[in-house]
Computed example of a mutant assay.
Amino acid sequence: MFRKLVSLALPAVALGLAGCGTDMMEQEPTAQAAEPVATQGQALTSVVLNKPYLPFFVPPLRSGDAEFGGNGPDMDIDFEMELRNNNTELWVGMAIWAREVGGDTYAQGDVWYKVFTAPSPIQSITPVGVKPEGPEFHFGYRDYGHATDTFQFPQTIPASRLVWQLSCVGDTDDKEAGSRTGCSAILHDMTITY
């Protein structure tokens, strides 16, 4: 039935176009000026931060003799985002806990890094929005050697991970808590809209 309708319609269309004098495929498109409509979305700007880097941070010694001595440590790292100064600045905090397994050596502290300043209040951040409570990213592990430990966290779909790579030093061959134990991080690309 469909083939019959098409075969009847094509000759009628061809007859109607035969007297036009120009081929419809070769015509230049005509530009129509649309009247601009202002919306709130048009006033927003988005910026992509490519893999922001958070420098190595060593939390201070809180207790013990500063020597993990091959007993871990158990490492816990949290990352939080915060908007400051009338929501025009994006800050990322890194908190580190390093606890000796079966001992009393303990290092703990946090540091905040300003990663972006916008000319107007920030409206959204992806892949992760600022959560009202709790960390945007947490990772924990037990250190089993003296080498630098590096972990990568591929982005999820939809994008929800803040941290792309984490590099940490736990135990070393000497006293390290408060002097060498710590972490650095590289964040995933972030899109900030303001």
Rank of each mutant, 00 (worst) to 15 (best):
T150N: 07
M1K: 00
I157Y: 12
Q165L: 04
P52F: 10
Q155G: 15
D149E: 11
E35P: 00
P60S: 14
G102K: 01
Q165N: 01
W97M: 06
L187V: 05
R142P: 01
P60M: 11
V101N: 08
V130D: 13
P29A: 15
N87V: 04
L10P: 00
F153Q: 04
T156W: 11
R161K: 15
A185H: 03
P121H: 04
P154W: 04
A66F: 07
G19C: 11
T22D: 14
T193M: 06
S120W: 00
L162E: 10
V48S: 07
F68V: 02
E26T: 08
E67V: 10
L83G: 02
V128K: 10
E136H: 05
G93N: 07
G145L: 13
V115P: 02
Q42T: 03
L8W: 12
L5V: 06
G70W: 12
D78F: 11
F116W: 13
P158R: 06
S7D: 08
P59F: 10
G102L: 11
G16K: 05
P36K: 02
P73S: 10
F79Y: 15
G69I: 01
V115C: 06
Q155I: 11
P55D: 14
V101S: 07
F2G: 11
G178S: 09
L90C: 03
D174I: 07
R180C: 01
V48I: 07
K51G: 04
T45C: 00
Q155V: 12
P59T: 02
T22E: 14
L17Q: 06
V6Y: 07
A9N: 14
L54G: 09
D78L: 05
V37C: 03
P73D: 08
T45G: 00
V169P: 03
F116K: 00
F79A: 12
G145P: 12
K114E: 15
V130S: 05
Q32R: 11
F79H: 12
R84K: 14
E176F: 00
T126Q: 09
N86K: 10
